[in-house]
Structure formats: structure tokens, C-alpha cells
């Protein structure tokens, strides 16, 4: 029971982390290696608004999500747009941006154990004999809602459909009058917001530390690779697979191995089936 409950919670948080990465890649084919940095910076921005400026918690969350969106869009508009289409340069450039943000934060004094965000609701309840605090519960519910909402958004709204069209065939979308750069910029903004949303949901459970930026990046890559790059539903299912695998290993083998599991998942998936569990790319495209 414990495994089931914590597995689900862990899976949803992984899905939240991975969703932004999957979304950006799915739409604009940019592997956004600054994803972890966006996640962390949102946490720190919220912290600054809440503790330093003294805004109410909810407003500081919304504001920091907005900041994140702008940051993501600026990143695309001024930097990534120039290396668009050159995969390796995209990886290197976005990773370098991530490094700048993360190490800049670390240099700016954001380190140590002092940075925490308050949970949404104190207290805990019993689910099937396992104590679960309310915040984890809320996180899971919001997470699931967010993922379904996103699904509805991309399948039933105009912008969502445009984004999907672009994900499938950029040139065709261009011919239909969809501004691909604008859409990619929006996607980056959305991705950043999702990273921020994940941060505000997950970070209250622990400290905000710069290192976890790298962890989040690896986790989201793991989720997306296992699910198949560019496939959102795949990312969702993969989050559950990795989430449960992690909980199982930490229960039966030891908690050191959580990260090993994630990385091993990436390596094995890439070796055995590079298109991932739900990937739709053609075999010839990814393998020589």
C-alpha cells in the first residue's frame, strides 16, 4: 500500500517535471536543457516575492510563473532562435543557459538550507493506512488536473491545435499561416510555466537547492526519453513506470539507487528502443 501511494505521488511529480520538457520538444523540437534551471529559478523567485517583498503566497506564485514564462520566451527570442534546427547547438546553448542560471544563482548566494517555501496546507491524513500529508495530496490532484487540462487544451483549442500542427509538420504549418517562431516562443513560455508550476508544487516539500536543478533535468530527460521524445502521453506513462521503479528500488534496495534507476532507464531505452515506448518517429530517422 505504501508503495502504491508513494509510487503514485512520486510518479505524478516526475510527470510534472517532465511535462514542460516534453511540451517544448514536442512542439519546437528544441531539447530544452535549461529546463532544470527554469524549475529552480521559479522556486527562488517565489521565495523572493514571498519572503523578501512580503507578497501573499498565492500572488507570489502567480507572479513567479509569469516571470518564468517571460524568461522562457526571452530565451527563445534572443538565443535559441538563432540555433534553431541545429540539434547539437540547441543542446549546448540551452545547457549553457541552464548553467549560467544555476551557477549564477549559486554565486549570488542562493545556497544552504534556508530556502524553503511553505506548504499549501498543513496536516496529513491516512490513505489506506499510510499517512499522507495534505500538500502531497494537493500536488497529486493538481498534477493530474494540469495534465488532463493540457490534453484538453491541445486537442480542443485553437492555439493548442496550432501547436499540435506544428509539432507534426512544421513546414506544412508554415504554409497554413501558423507563425512557427511565435508558436515555438509560446511553447518555450508554456514549458517554462510548466517547469515553474512543477517547482511551486514540489519544492514546498523540501529545500530549494541549486543541485536539484540538475536532478530535475535528468529526471525530465528520463521521463521524456522513456516515453519517447515528443510524445506527451508517453511522457505521462513513462513517469509512472520510472516513478514506481524508483520507489520499489528505494524500498527494496536502497535510496541511493533512485538516480541510478533514472539514468539506467535513459540508457536502456536509448539502446533498446530509441523512439521510446510511445514514440512515433520513424526508425530510419533516429538510427543509422
Amino acid at each position: 500500500m505504501e508503495i502504491l501511494v508513494y509510487g503514485t505521488i512520486n510518479s505524478v511529480s516526475l510527470a510534472l517535471m517532465g511535462l514542460g520538457f516534453a511540451m517544448v520538444y514536442g512542439i519546437s523540437r528544441i531539447p530544452n536543457f535549461a529546463h532544470g534551471a527554469l524549475y529552480i529559478i521559479c522556486g527562488f523567485v517565489t521565495w523572493t516575492f514571498f519572503h523578501k517583498i512580503g507578497l501573499p503566497y498565492s500572488i507570489s506564485i502567480i507572479l513567479s510563473l509569469g516571470v518564468n514564462a517571460i524568461l522562457g520566451m526571452l530565451m527563445y527570442r534572443f538565443i535559441l532562435i538563432r540555433v534553431r534546427g541545429m540539434n547539437i547547438s540547441e543542446i549546448i546553448a540551452s545547457y549553457a543557459i541552464g548553467l549560467i542560471i544555476l551557477e549564477g544563482l549559486r554565486f549570488g548566494g542562493f545556497r544552504g538550507m534556508t530556502y524553503t517555501l511553505p506548504v499549501f496546507m498543513e496536516g496529513s491524513m491516512m490513505i489506506g493506512g499510510v499517512p499522507v500529508d495534505y500538500h502531497r495530496l494537493i500536488m497529486t490532484i493538481i498534477g493530474v488536473l494540469l495534465i488532463t487540462g493540457l490534453w484538453v487544451f491541445t486537442h480542443y483549442t485553437k492555439i493548442g491545435l496550432a501547436l499540435q500542427g506544428m509539432a507534426q509538420d512544421e513546414q506544412a504549418a508554415l504554409m497554413l499561416g501558423i507563425d512557427s517562431d511565435l508558436m515555438a516562443m509560446l511553447a518555450m513560455g508554456f514549458g517554462a510555466v510548466l517547469a515553474g508550476a512543477a517547482a511551486t508544487l514540489i519544492l514546498p516539500l523540501g529545500n530549494i537547492v541549486v543541485e536539484s536543478g540538475y536532478h530535475v533535468l535528468i529526471m525530465s530527460i528520463a521521463v521524456c526519453i522513456v516515453g519517447g521524445l515528443g510524445s506527451w502521453m508517453g511522457a505521462f506513462f513513462a513517469a509512472f513506470i520510472i516513478g514506481y521503479a524508483q520507489i520499489l528500488t528505494s524500498v527494496f534496495i536502497g535510496s541511493h539507487f533512485q538516480m541510478v534507476v533514472a539514468i539506467l532507464a535513459i540508457i536502456l531505452t536509448l539502446i533498446l528502443k530509441p523512439s521510446g515506448l510511445f514514440g512515433q518517429q520513424k526508425e530510419l530517422e533516429e538510427r543509422v
Partner: peptide, 14 residues
């Protein structure tokens, strides 16, 4: 080795 571009880059990064 049969992997291309991003995939090879990611796996070597891992």
C-alpha cells in the same frame, strides 16, 4: 553507435 544526433548526445551525457 547506431544512434543519431540528439540521442547519441544525450546517452553520452548520461
Amino acid at each position: 553507435l547506431p544512434l543519431k544526433g540528439v540521442y547519441f548526445a544525450i546517452i553520452t551525457l548520461m
